[in-house]
Design a protein around this nucleic acid. Structure first.
Lengths: 220, 220
DNA sequence: ATTACTAGCACTCGAGTAG
DNA sequence: TCTACTCGAGTGCTAGTAA
């Protein structure tokens, strides 16, 4: 049954544009998947129940919207194949500098994270993050990076609250080594947070809204 | 059953090194796939019958060798996802110039091919091919390119024999536009043949064994 | 047209087990 | 230990059909 779900998502994504919305009948999906209309209908019900899609049934044709969970399926399969086939390509992202408001600083300065950064990344990060809004043309690449494994940093508890796990990806900007960090449980956002042992704003002479290119190395 | 085959190939490829050989018991495969030993055994038999793998049964442990057909499955799934997710990256290959012996010239000069090259590629090719041996580090990328769709050129018959279909990929070398051509029915080789409307050896001042970089554009 | 329920059947899975 | 056969059970398919 899992295979049907995967295949259905592939087809729905192919038919939906970048807006992830598609008008398709169960018979239409059945034709593409070379299965019966009844089975296609069951699959759609299943996808809906399991929150892979949303659906609205206007008059005749149903409208299907792919949810994040569907995209995750595809991007993680892509990454799986990437790593199995040892195609560690480097990804190039481009975006511009945003004002970070300082929450990043609050989080990464926590001892529970800092210790692990030093151990696992081999750097003692400058206590602050550089926030970069990735240009929308690079959304697909960013999604692909996000769904890769990366370097895992465990969550922890302090006296007051729990802090979730994050994952890091080695990267460089103009030759300066840095790391992208993503909260492990969060949905897609086009803003990435970057840490480095250097103060990147000084090192790279960056101001808000400056354009920059970012190279991510996924080695698995 | 198809899904099992796909999954088994993924696991076998992951466990096998770049030599595509792996020692694994049916119980071992079963554990990885979270299925019973019996089912794993059946899958292995199936893979063998359908020429996805070769197997030899020495004393205790069986040795499984992944055949081209298995790699094709993985690389074409990768390409599928690539095109569905609209991640048309450009691939960079590097290799060195080889002496082509002139068979390439014989083939591409055939009217049946030439007409289609002009129609579908928009160039009137110089009647000869540049043969490039791709460096082995780029094997994975070359395989990935090969399993993509490309521009299809139909096969045809002349008075004497039949000529098979080929597929072409737009590429450029030092800014000069060219096309990689692959026979549609042939197994992997690390030599690629390149056509262009220019005589590339002159245009790029190439001699045998000269190193060159090749950029392939897969747009789907 | 649609979607999707029910019924019946076919296929695939895993337990048991032989070699 | 291994691989792989048989067979019963259960899953998931399609056809028929209702709404």
């Amino acid at each position: 049954m899992d295979y049907n779900i995967y295949n259905a998502i592939k087809i729905l994504k192919k038919k939906s544009g970048s807006k992830n919305v598609v008008f398709i009948s169960s018979a239409g999906l059945a034709r593409e998947m070379k299965i019966s209309q009844q089975t296609a209908s069951r699959i759609i019900i299943n996808l809906y129940k399991n929150k892979f899609i949303d659906r609205t049934m206007n008059n005749r044709k149903q409208k299907i919207t792919l949810l994040e969970k569907s995209l995750d399926v595809l991007y993680s399969e892509l990454n799986d194949l990437y790593s199995i086939l040892e195609m560690h390509q480097n990804f190039e992202l481009s975006g511009n500098v945003r004002n970070g408001l300082g929450e990043g600083k609050y989080y990464i300065s926590k001892e529970g994270y800092m210790k692990q950064f030093e151990e696992k990344l081999g750097i003692k990060p400058y206590p602050g993050t550089l926030n970069v809004k990735i240009n929308s043309e690079y959304e697909n690449i960013l999604r692909s990076v996000r769904s890769a494994d990366g370097i895992h940093i465990n969550g922890f508890k302090d006296d007051e609250r729990t802090f979730g796990g994050v994952k890091c990806f080695k990267a460089h900007i103009d030759g300066i080594k840095c790391f992208l960090i993503f909260p492990e449980r969060s949905s897609y956002t086009d803003i990435v947070e970057i840490i480095s042992d250097k103060y990147l704003r000084d090192e790279l002479k960056l101001n808000d809204n400056d354009e920059l290119k970012l190279n991510v190395d996924i080695d698995n």
